[in-house]
Write a protein that binds this DNA or RNA. Structure first.
Length: 424
RNA sequence: GGAGAAAUGGCAGAGUGGUCGAUUGCGGCAGUCUUGAAAACUGUUGAACCGCGAGGUUCCGGGGGUUCGAAUCCCUCUUUCUCCGCCA
């Protein structure tokens, strides 16, 4: 959520940036926010004054009672009834005005960084980095959903039997490859200075709200109704919420955490080849990296994070490219996002395997995650996160790109983790 | 799941209706002393909103109520602890 102080102080800039994210009527919306804010301030002032008067009267009554002046006290009591009514009325007005503002503010997306390319869809994203060459496959090369069946390593039908579409069962070397990737990613992240976290994979409403899944994207998450808990769509949710309602010391920044969790996504409304095989699942594994950073340093941190993710892909010997997302393709909460895509040679398409974003204060404003600066004032920190990495599409690309007529070759870095170098 | 107790500032821990945003101790910060450090001593030290400022308002787990007035009384929810039961 955008900060009202930011909107007040940088009106034109906020409008300009919202337009970069294709928000319609940005200027009018901001004017409306400011109008409500002014109304809110006026109501609060009146309410505070009324309360101050009521407090003073109550004190007077107390003094009169003590000195035995009962009659005078009774007179004052009638005065407070009137004050109380006004107080109640103003409180209600304040609440409804605050709600009005809040309801409007939550509809506004984060303001993008000015380097974000303008645009409305994925075709406007800017390719900022490419690595590796697209592999040439042999004539009988198969897409990964056929390879997994051929080698009996991932069973989609069995998942349908147990749970439904989008819940594959990993078997034998397929399961071992999953475990290998998780361990490889966690070891790398730890070596890069991230502290490993094992969070809960169901979270409460407050947490869902803190990172922005609630109230809007409720349909994206599985909901455990009886306990009113949500299955996490990403480890970002619990790991970032660690810092909800926390005031950090400036010297603690940046805070680097990582964690492996299964992720659950309902993802209604997609069909066809986009969701075939491992391309899109309801449950998948992911290692996430999360940083809480100083506002002056968060863009350095973002570059650092995307270089880190690139290094993982390089080690896995996967051809990939880095996109800087355009205003129209970025997520609601992000100020700047890099997507990393690997090339899946049998499908002959790019698959998004990581998204690295700087949210600036958009999440921390909701989370109330602050640090104390050198002047002793509390300020919102910046939050960032990235996948490092999401497994299924990595597996898809590994299987497809490394297939030979004699089996699938495991990249060198994973062999110690797998305990085998080929899937036959 | 049953019975009981509790929830106060970074931590510990007072406060059972009227200058209590809250005694005190520890911790933190600043200073005095010291060649330096420690110790000792002195001061300072929660958050949010409104206001140019003076200052005002709100917050003692969450929500609601009683009262002129609530950290203090009542209701309710949540969490923690102790005992019993069950159990990976």
């Amino acid at each position: 959520m955008l900060q009202i102080t930011t909107i007040r102080e940088n009106k034109e800039d906020v409008v300009k940036r919202l337009e970069l994210k294709n928000v319609k009527n940005a200027a009018a919306l901001i004017e409306q926010v400011l109008e409500i804010d002014n109304r809110r301030k006026a109501i609060q002032k009146q309410g505070d004054d009324t309360k101050a008067e009521a407090n003073a009267t109550a004190r007077q009554i107390g003094d009169l009672m003590k000195s035995g002046q009962k009659a005078e006290a009774e007179v004052l009591k009638t005065k407070t009834t009137e004050l109380k009514n006004r107080e109640k009325e103003l409180d209600e007005q304040l609440q409804s005005t605050e709600k009005e503002m809040h309801d409007l503010l939550v509809t506004l997306p984060n303001t993008p960084h000015l380097s974000v390319p303008p645009g409305t869809s994925a075709t406007d994203n800017a390719v900022v980095f490419e690595h590796g060459s697209i592999p040439k496959l042999h004539d009988k090369a198969l897409p990964h959903w056929e390879l997994t069946a051929k080698y009996d390593i991932i069973d989609f039908e069995l998942g349908v039997k147990l749970s439904g579409a989008g819940f594959p069962v990993y078997k034998g070397k397929g399961a071992r490859l999953q475990r290998a990737l998780i361990n490889f990613f966690l070891d790398k992240a730890t070596a890069a200075g991230y502290r490993e976290i094992q969070p809960p994979i169901v979270v409460n409403e407050d947490s869902g709200y803190g990172t922005g899944q609630l109230p809007d994207k409720e349909g994206q998450m599985y909901h455990v109704g009886v306990d009113n808990l949500y299955l996490i769509p990403t480890a970002e949710v619990p790991i970032t919420n660690i810092y909800r309602d926390v005031i950090l010391k400036e010297e603690e920044l940046p805070i680097k955490n990582c964690g492996y969790t299964p992720c659950f996504r309902r993802e209604a409304g997609s069909y066809g080849k986009d969701v075939r095989g491992l391309n899109r699942l309801h449950q998948f594994d992911k290692v996430e990296i999360v940083q809480i950073a100083h506002p002056d340093k968060s863009y350095e941190v973002l570059e650092d994070m995307r270089n880190y993710v690139a290094s993982l892909l390089t080690e896995l010997e996967l051809p990939f490219r880095t996109l800087k997302l355009c205003g129209g393709d970025m997520s609601f909460a992000s100020a700047l996002t890099y997507d990393m895509e690997v090339y899946s040679a049998a499908q002959q398409r790019w698959l998004e395997v990581s998204s690295v974003s700087n949210f600036e204060t958009f999440q921390t404003n909701r989370l109330k995650c602050r640090y104390r600066n050198d002047k002793g004032k509390t300020q919102l920190a910046h939050s960032l996160n990235g996948s490092a990495l999401a497994l299924p599409r990595i597996v898809a690309a590994l299987l497809e790109n490394n297939q030979t007529e004699n089996g699938i070759r495991i990249p060198k870095v994973l062999v110690p983790y797998c305990g085998f170098d080929t899937i036959q």
